[in-house]
């Protein structure tokens, strides 16, 4: 028997999962789109992981969840660790780069920076109220330019004279981009300009006031874009480390945190075949009118969120 730990990172755009050994070696991993359905995505993810593990001795003894659907999936899988993605990313990255001092992370809907010293996170920031520096902005602009977002990086690297694109706000950036395109600039130069704009937005917004020191590790979906990596290297004057498994760092971190929790309970993949349903309802017992989301397992109440007080949940759990 090989003791192992399952970590799942359910983001707004993608869902990532890893199974690691006690030593932290990755036995299996999977990455797929959330498509607005975290429960469905996790079921598909578990199917892939189970397949990868067949024939091995691995037995999962603890589960951790992170990402924006961590509470929901954590309740469904009865997870030992449910943690925010910042802690999970720091933990995962430290396991591969014990000397890391700065982590850049740009995901689909959010971006963050984590500053570490001597293997301890000492400062972090997360974007607020602004989507200009995130992956979804890049993919919407790729569509506008008629190129695949996966090719974005190669286009950027071919640019000879990156054009200037305002990075302060998606609306400004988009209007700049349209203007430059209509002026006849080469697509390569526009794409490179956009990568620079993303980086400048990130450094001035999320990274504002932070002491950015090497080694710098860059993660999240956008780290797969070599154009943005190059723009970061130019802007900071440092090498930017991007791991092949950079997109799995949150999942890896939460798997390690599940292990560190010291709690163990055999995990059974058969959970896949259970039916989970979420229903929303408005409490209506006071003017707060909380929107309570409940998750039901095989039609049985499992967990609920969104209530500001106990009244609403009690009503659901003990309907008269």
């Amino acid at each position: 028997m090989l003791k192992s730990y399952l970590g799942i990172d359910i983001g707004s755009i993608s869902t990532k999962g890893v199974v690691v050994t006690e030593e932290g070696d990755i036995l299996a991993s999977s990455y797929l789109w959330t498509e607005g359905n975290p429960i469905g995505a996790v079921k598909r993810l578990l199917a892939q992981l189970e397949e990868d593990l067949t024939g091995t001795e691995a037995r999962i003894v603890a589960v951790g969840t992170t990402g924006s659907a961590r509470e929901l999936i954590g309740a469904i899988l009865d997870a030992q660790a449910i943690k925010n993605e910042i802690t999970a990313h720091a933990m995962g990255t430290l396991s591969l780069h014990p000397d890391v001092r700065t982590i850049f992370e740009i995901g689909g809907q959010d971006s963050k920076i984590i500053i570490l010293r001597d293997g301890i996170p000492v400062d972090y920031a997360m974007n607020t109220l602004c989507a200009a520096g995130t992956g979804s902005f890049l993919s919407s602009q790729a569509k506008r330019l008629g190129i695949q977002v996966e090719q974005f990086g190669d286009y950027a690297l071919r640019a000879e004279r990156p054009t200037k694109i305002a990075g302060r706000c998606t609306v400004f950036a988009e209007s700049d981009l349209v203007h430059k395109a209509q002026m006849g600039y080469a697509v390569e130069d526009i794409v490179a300009g956009l990568c620079n704009a993303i980086v400048s937005n990130y450094l001035n917004n999320v990274g504002k006031g932070k002491k950015i020191e090497a080694p710098i590790v860059f993660q999240g979906g956008v780290s797969k874009n070599v154009g943005v990596v190059k723009a970061f290297a130019d802007a900071t004057g440092h090498d930017i480390l991007v791991d092949d498994c950079g997109h799995l760092m949150g999942a890896l971190g939460i798997a390690l945190l599940a292990k560190a929790s010291g709690l163990e309970d055999d995990f059974d993949f058969s959970i896949r075949s259970m039916s989970f349903k979420t229903t929303g309802l408005e409490c209506g017992r006071c003017p707060n009118n909380c929107e309570i989301v409940c998750v039901l397992r095989d039609e049985e109440f499992l967990a609920g969120w969104g209530n500001r007080c106990e009244v609403g949940l009690e009503q659901i759990m003990r309907p008269e």
Partner: peptide, 21 residues
């Protein structure tokens, strides 16, 4: 809530000097 949780985790780790659950 996510930001507060992360902030508290970070303070805890700084205090203990180790990364932990």
């Amino acid at each position: 809530n996510t930001r507060i949780e992360a902030f508290c985790d970070m303070l805890e780790m700084r205090k203990k000097g180790v990364v932990s659950a």
